[in-house]
Nucleic acid binder design. Structure first.
Lengths: 204, 204
DNA sequence: TCTGGTGTGGATCAGTGTTCCACAGCAATA
DNA sequence: TATTGCTGTGGAACACTGATCCACACCAGA
């Protein structure tokens, strides 16, 4: 077989892995299948990425990069261009859901342990933090504008994110007893924002 | 080897599977390991449960049964014995977190696809609904007492559950940037309840 | 007492992640 | 230009997995 130029190797492997994952699913994401799809030798995967987990980590990392872009700008509309701070947050979370629903298997690799024993690396966690930053910025603006309670935006953003994530997890795994899942998601987001926008009694 | 009495087979297999899962993790949960731990032939697992997925489903089902019991009564204190309806919900969710943190791997099998391709069966989903019912009852009481907005308790309960689940997912997978995870969980629960206890503006 | 269901031990199969190997091609050096 | 070292390729091999098949033996009910 022709020898693949070294410069293309990682790209081709990563692209093939992403395509296999999204098209067929995590179960079909075997090293041999990736090598075949990338038209690359099996050994090359081990040369470039250390193991399957490392390859998955690269897939997850690329996913977070794409997620950050999707949050920042969708359809040519920068999130920051939305004036109302609350609308800003709501739109950001709507984009978040669209990413998850549009890329369910990649979302699974990014956030769940779709493969037993696999866990995102600290480096990829750093990339994930970039995605979170988009929401933190929006929350900060809302706090500054007096639309949300004055509190730590990093904490508040993670509260909202976690709630949204939980709803999406149930939606993607088809667990739950809800008729309109999109509306359910919006309601949870709205409820969190509502709960964060008026003074809370001291928690017990 | 001595022949295992038929009546004990399923119990022994299931117990061994649960113990292996909780003690070592999902990665060590192989059919051969389960057979060895249960002191049972490999074939017997296939005779009693159809496949590994079916065995996992049984593990998950038993987990939901236990979760329901843990929610209903903990330390001899029935959840229903708590008078204040909001305290009732808060305590129920605290018990939910204690179950998840105390049984992280079982929680993983019950709610996540810790094994690729595995999904809870519809029958087990029904058992999971029993767990949800505990929260639905508490929410219903709170609505009846005028402590939460008058709305569908089944939907409201799932909103709270999903939010709590999202926080726990991040906590169990060690994702997130929060100092005090227990307090973070409580805050999300409190915020959801606060958001559900005062009239909401019409969502956009 | 016999007989059918079923638990046991063992082999076997395809497929997995991973490693090792001989070989060959390409690039930078002498 | 000639040589050398890195690395991609193809293939075998390893231990392990879920799953199936088999002969055999045991036990309960007819």
């Amino acid at each position: 077989m022709a020898r693949t130029p070294s410069g293309e190797l990682e790209t081709r492997i990563l692209d093939a892995a992403v395509e296999l994952l999204t098209e067929v699913g995590a179960g079909a994401l075997t090293q041999r299948a990736v090598a075949k799809a990338a038209n690359v030798s099996l050994q090359s995967i081990y040369n470039r990425f250390g193991s399957k987990h490392d390859l998955l980590d690269a897939v997850a990392n690329a996913g977070f990069v794409e997620l950050t872009e999707a949050l920042r700008s969708e359809g040519g509309i920068p999130l920051a261009s939305i004036e109302d701070p609350i609308d800003n947050i709501v739109e950001g979370l709507a984009r978040y859901r669209r990413f998850a629903i549009g890329n369910p298997r990649r979302y699974g690799v990014m956030f769940d342990a779709d493969v037993p024993g696999f866990r995102i690396s600290d480096a990829t966690l750093g990339t994930a933090f970039e995605s979170l930053t988009v929401l933190v910025d929006a929350v900060t603006s809302a706090v500054d504008a007096g639309r949300l309670n004055p509190d730590d935006p990093l904490i508040m953003a993670q509260m909202i994110w976690a709630a949204a994530h939980g709803v999406l997890r149930f939606e993607l795994t088809e667990v739950g007893f809800v008729a309109d899942r999109a509306a359910h998601y919006d309601r949870v987001v709205a409820t969190m924002l509502h709960g964060l926008s008026t003074p809370q009694p001291a928690a017990g």
